[in-house]
Design a protein around this nucleic acid. Sequence first.
DNA 1: GACCAGGCACATC
DNA 2: GATGTGCATGGT
Length: 219
Amino acid sequence: MTSNTLEEFYETLLAACGPQHWWPGDTPTEIAIGAILTQNTNWRNVERAIEQLRAADMLSWPAIHHAEFERVAELIRPAGYFRIKTRRLKNFASWLADNFDGKIENLGRQPLFEAREQLLSVNGIGPETADSILLYALNMPTFVVDAYTARIAIRHGLIDESAGYDELKALFEDNLPEDVELFNEYHALIVNVGKHHCKPKPRCEGCPLACFEHETEFD
DNA sequence: GACCAGGCACATC
DNA sequence: GATGTGCATGGT
């Protein structure tokens, strides 16, 4: 691929959708909780769960750490997978308490590579959740890959369909300037367009990126 | 009723 | 190393 294909995609998406301004006014803790709750889940359901946590004054790591399992589970139920996600939230809260004085901001004081490796060592934090926390909560320059990112890159022939998370991440990071605001906005734009068009079975009508012109067969 | 959603861990071959 | 499965609610 040419080095500016991904920059062109960005300009196209920005022109078509406008700036998304994702997670702008929230605290790092609220963003990280959202990142865990949104695993394989519609964001609308996550918003309900977060509002219930907020109403119960449970939108903090110490509160989650010390609360009864069933209490947290009941509050986050609308986000789905509520038992496994309760375990992941409490596990993360415990890890923060043990290693970072319970403050997620302290994680961001480390170099990006070390912070990412440590996040990935926590049970329940995979690559997308780790990168979402680093980029959106801690303002560190790491590109967030999701299912939509993979579909777009594959359908435009930018990468082999067998590519894994790290290869997709490298594709974007190697062909874009290292810029927190750019990475933030780019991923948000991809999700926004993805919700309408980058389904397992693509809905190309009106898609700004017109994936169908580049790929003849979808399964 | 089928399909989808801003994944991840674990089992099994 | 690749592939399959459980986890669960809510919208379209």
